[in-house]
Design a protein around this nucleic acid. Sequence first.
DNA 1: TTGTACGCGTTATCAG
DNA 2: CTGATAACGCGTACAA
Lengths: 339, 339
Amino acid sequence: MVRLRIRDIAEQAGVSPATVSRYLNNQPGQMSEDTRARIAEVIERTGYRPRTAARNLRQDRSNLVGVVLADVSNPYSSAMLEALSACAAERGLSLITSFSGGDPVIEAASVARLVDMGVDGLVVNTCGDNDEALASTAARIPMVLLDREVAGAPADLVTSNNRELVRLLVDEMLKASCERVFMLTERGDESSPRRIRTQAFVRELQRRNVAGEVVSLGDGSCAQAQMDGLLRAAAGRRLGVIAVNGAVFLRLVDAIAQIGPSLPAGLRVATFDDYPWNHVLFGGVTTAAQDTGRIARAVLDRLARRVDEAARASVPPARAERVEVEVPGTVVVRSSTYA
Amino acid sequence: MVRLRIRDIAEQAGVSPATVSRYLNNQPGQMSEDTRARIAEVIERTGYRPRTAARNLRQDRSNLVGVVLADVSNPYSSAMLEALSACAAERGLSLITSFSGGDPVIEAASVARLVDMGVDGLVVNTCGDNDEALASTAARIPMVLLDREVAGAPADLVTSNNRELVRLLVDEMLKASCERVFMLTERGDESSPRRIRTQAFVRELQRRNVAGEVVSLGDGSCAQAQMDGLLRAAAGRRLGVIAVNGAVFLRLVDAIAQIGPSLPAGLRVATFDDYPWNHVLFGGVTTAAQDTGRIARAVLDRLARRVDEAARASVPPARAERVEVEVPGTVVVRSSTYA
DNA sequence: TTGTACGCGTTATCAG
DNA sequence: CTGATAACGCGTACAA
């Protein structure tokens, strides 16, 4: 049960290995219909498959893309991963995945391991605090950043149109005639989407002259007190709360659950990231959903382009231009913001 | 900026490539402390890393494990993936991931692609209806099945102790003095965990002489009617409902939400798979949680063993014994089953 | 303890 | 349109 080599196929088809190789790679040099058919028959009959390791060595290319995600417990990440996987398969790429769990040390180790494995490029959703390592890696092999930017890294960036989504969520709150609108975030998270969303939120409030602010949750009982204060405020006038991401929203839901089973009268809530439970909580939660399919396509488009460029020119251009892509998401309106 | 080869390191250290290779692979043949130090210095200084593609070709081994998951929108799958990833990294393995989305055709294509990529082994959480393809693949390369078994496949199987978990959930329902207990499942899902759980459930009811049955949901309005019936029944006497998995539980929650914001009086619910929202729904849902860390370890233990065996003996044993491992999970009791 | 020489399977180049 | 040949970079007998 030794594995077939290209030479075996060549012998059985009565041609040379080079010809079989051309057949396999659809080389421009056309071959006679006769030999083509003979080779096809032998391959079909034997079930021959070329050996990837040998191709990789020869071509200096693995068709492998490394993916490093910060937090898969976040369903948005899993959806993203699935979309990337499907999109990669379409292009004949495979994904080597790794998860940092929010630890920069693990993230750096993951990146190093993936590079060692010979990936053609990297997709990184960084957990932060790794700028130097990522920048130096990006200088050596193609890298596309997902959602979160990295200072000084010569890598492309793909995100959702966060500013626009914030605007749409604020729209919903105002349609629901909220008198004050808050955005809920948390201390630990200094990622770029968070920053962009909160900044955009503040600008929206100013632009429309609406009362409200960004509330940054601390830890433990302090945070509980903050949220209690926020929720009690709802008793009087109509109040809107937008969670800056899914993790924060879960904390918000938890706090609301302490008070009662349903949304307090006068409180409207909305969040980012369309998790399954958003459909059922409070009869449905208004959500800014990111388009994972289009994001995945944009990510792999950029990466494939970079990989091709790198393959063509052995010396990477000194002034690599960084491309930033914003993929439009959509706001799904559900009963948590109905007037 | 050409990449360094082992030969370059050898020259700089004033030794032969073979010696550097031995250094890299910690060959038993000891080398003089002097040359060892010189090689170490050069490698450290140059940042040399051996080329994986060349090693793979030479050693006929990739240190790559293919992972095929049926449904990553299921948070249990993501947790499993993360655990596998961490565990694999510890062993110097990397994961190539693929997702079938419940489609047997995609699953078969994924498996084929991963095998082509040269993975050393496969971890498969099958979506079903692929027994022949999986069995023939398992006959060629090491495979470990996750949760769901495949008829006729010479592969090991790792699952949770579903029967025990069912027993514990029924225990909780009885502690909550439920007079009747139901297990909710759905038509489409004929997977082995579902079958094992429902069978165990029926046995438990008989053993304890408790009233109840397995309710298999159909589609759409029919299912809604079934659930309405179930929920109305709760009005009278105390009733327990156990969802056979997370997907079914989401349907149950949806139906309950149609009626009101909180759990109807007299109704107790519990489910499998510890999703984030189980902590907040109804003030906390009692859950049979699977131990993803231990499962991952068991999976990769088995796989590594098989891979080593296969590497040693070029001819696989005709009578391969299939090993089945049951990893104990735990029941997390929350207020949805408090008396 | 170390070095030499060969082969892993494929593809690119060049000659025909 | 096809064939011969030389790499790709590494690991490992075997020889020294």
